[in-house]
């Protein structure tokens, strides 16, 4: 049976891992390759590396890091951040990434999803969606949650699926960094409305939150950063807990 996946996310700036709390203040947390290896040995099912560097130099450093990760780790990994065009995707995939995650670029020019799917296959195309819930429903945001768009979460999710995305990485901005659990209601609605896997992101603070994302939220995978980085939850104990809760997990 296909296992539910646990995915640590590493934000990388100038070759170093950092973690944003509610998308703003950053704290250092080590070398991305070493941290990635540690997670892999602990039983992480996949890794996500997000490049949060703005500069051209930083981008080059990130590509070199991707190559090091691919050389040294033997679990799948996704890279994202700053991908604007097909050439960026090509550069990261040829450096050894298994998948790319696109966010703002897809909102600005949705055809990029079709292009990635056509050139490299749907399985490499993860569309990340940051959304915030207001009185009109869930609204999608650009640029790491700074700029609202006129797109609604469920409509956009349906569109990216139609265009050939392979997975959706949904971050609830309202839950991110708050550690009170994932946005399970929105996750469940997403899971029912699209035919591609959903990765839950934003809100992990306790082991029960992961269980709920899989049971109530019907997510295929759950992503978290700080609870893993700062050792608040160990991946082996988390996976053992989920196994005991009758969730199919790779031990």
């Amino acid at each position: 049976m296909l296992a539910k996946r646990i995915i640590p996310c590493l934000d990388v700036k100038d070759g170093q891992t950092v973690k944003g709390t509610n998308f703003v203040s950053l704290r250092q947390a080590g070398d991305p390759v070493e941290l990635g290896r540690a997670y892999s040995e602990q039983g992480a099912d996949e890794l996500v590396f997000l490049d949060i560097t703005a500069s051209h130099e930083g981008r080059k450093t990130f590509t070199e890091m991707v190559r090091r990760v691919a050389s040294e780790l033997s679990i799948p990994f996704t890279v994202g951040g700053g991908i604007g065009e097909l050439a960026d995707v090509e550069r990261l995939l040829s450096a050894g990434a298994d998948k790319v995650s696109i966010n703002s670029a897809a909102l600005k020019r949705p055809e990029l999803i079709d292009e990635i799917a056509r050139h490299f296959g749907s399985q490499v195309c993860v569309v990340a969606i940051d959304a915030h819930q207001d009185e009109s429903g869930w609204t999608c945001y650009l640029n790491g949650g700074r700029v609202p768009t006129d797109r609604k979460l469920f409509d956009w999710a349906h569109e990216v699926c139609e265009r050939g995305a392979g997975e959706i990485l949904f971050t609830s901005m309202d839950h991110d960094g708050v550690k009170t659990g994932f946005a399970n209601e929105a996750l469940a609605t997403l899971a029912e409305s699209v035919t591609i896997p959903i990765i839950a992101s934003g809100g992990a603070g306790a082991k029960e939150h992961f269980r709920d994302a899989f049971t109530l939220g019907k997510a295929d995978a759950a992503l978290a950063a700080s609870v893993f980085h700062f050792g608040e939850i160990g991946i082996p104990e988390l996976k053992q807990y989920l196994h005991n809760e009758h969730i199919n997990i790779r031990l």
């Binding site: 296909l2 296992a3 996946r5 099912d45 392979g166 035919t195 591609i196 019907k218």
Partner: peptide
């Protein structure tokens, strides 16, 4: 509906 294609991830 839950059976998504591609089959992607860890299986036994």
């Amino acid at each position: 509906h839950e059976e998504k294609v591609p089959h992607m991830g860890w299986n036994d």
